[in-house]
Design a protein around this nucleic acid. Structure first.
Lengths: 213, 213
DNA sequence: CACCTACTATGTCGGTTGTCATAGAACGTC
DNA sequence: GACGTTCTATGACAACCGACATAGTAGGTG
């Protein structure tokens, strides 16, 4: 947790440079209230950053800030996915999914239901239009998906199937996050993990060499 | 489609009363751009309603309007779910899920990716705080879930399991909608339907009386 | 010292937001 | 025709938004 190399490591207040703090703060505020409700001034204040620095570091305005926040979130998620192979002694697709969901159970249990997923929040507000944030959004989702695919392929799941399962896993997670926040309970997260487990386990075994028992 | 009793029937412009039109317009605008980006004035204009009527019909202000829009969406979704039993000759859980997803494939294919789900859009923007829209949000989701549970139970799925599957189905759908809008493709919808099909089919068969074949 | 660049500070602009106050029209009923 | 209710019209308010202009400071290099 204190390990700065850990994928969960986040820039604590006043550490890191103002620019990085603003991107991080933007992601935090966006996932709590959405993009439109997150003002540039709010971000600056939350990051304890000089207001004049915003237009200096982000000449592209709010769109640039939001885009970088969303890509930061995507990279963070991808790094967390990749961290599974270090912690698991017997890697499996269903174990991977549980690993991916775990931080959300912790988040809701310890910090409440204020904050959701930055990617979903941004998509809900902006994906319907033609915002400049759209390309970053696509990249963030693609990198997250790619990380999951990499893990699954490493377990012997065929690439095509791995892509489908990645879409399913992330989709179910996002929906369960919404559900959890609306009802203020973590049960939906447990449900999707439990229900998808057999399906994922089977996909993992299919990739294994035939067991001679 | 022209049948006013059909669950897809929607108030066409200038039909129905101004109040109802505003609720409907609010839902349409919200699911395209989110709650915060949807102004009361936008709704009034989109509904071709008199601006003065807004404060007359919605003394509770924007929160009331958004709340009713979200509940309207929940009822609409629930009605669509319930319509499955009329159209299916051999009802099954996987068939139900395909039926639930179908309108979204049509929506994206014919009208583009501008509009997403009103429930998800509202949840993303408001579920983290303590908005007055939260209770309506919960009701909308509960009614949607309830409709799915009713169908599954009618197929012989045990109630507890039906609740879990309903959460899984709606969660996966919501995530796939986001994914589709971000990448401007309907593939994610097909993927979740295809991947969940075996799991749902098995749940349906488990509820059947033992087959003497 | 001058000089350039990186960064910060602050004020202001036009536009939009939700809400409210006030007045007027439409329409029924007595 | 008078009255009461329902609905509509319009203007104004304070608060806020993102973007920009301008000026200043800090720190290094020559």
């Amino acid at each position: 947790m204190a390990d700065p190399q850990s994928p969960t490591a986040q820039p604590s207040t006043a550490q890191r440079r103002p620019r990085e703090r603003m991107v991080y703060s933007a992601a935090q505020l966006i996932r709590a209230r959405g993009v439109t409700a997150t003002g540039v001034r709010d971000v600056v204040e939350h990051a304890s950053a000089p207001r004049g620095s915003f237009q200096h570091y982000f000449p592209g305005g709010k769109d640039q800030l939001v885009g970088e926040a969303v890509e930061w979130a995507g990279d963070f998620a991808a790094r967390w996915v990749a961290s599974y192979r270090e912690t698991a002694d017997a890697p499996s697709p269903d174990g991977l999914f549980a690993h991916v969901v775990q931080p959300w159970k912790d988040e809701f249990a310890s910090r409440g239901y204020e904050r959701g997923c930055p990617v979903m929040a941004t998509a809900a507000d902006l994906a319907g239009g033609e915002s400049a944030v759209n390309p970053p959004l696509r990249r963030a989702l693609a990198r997250w998906e790619g990380a999951v695919v990499d893990e699954l392929v490493g377990m012997g799941v065929p690439a095509d199937r791995a892509r489908s399962l990645a879409v399913l896993m992330i989709s179910a997670l996002e929906g369960a996050i919404m559900w959890s926040r609306v009802n203020r309970e973590t049960a939906p997260l447990d449900i999707v993990v439990a229900e998808l487990a057999p399906l994922l386990r089977a996909a993992g075994r299919a990739g294994d060499p035939p067991r001679p028992d």
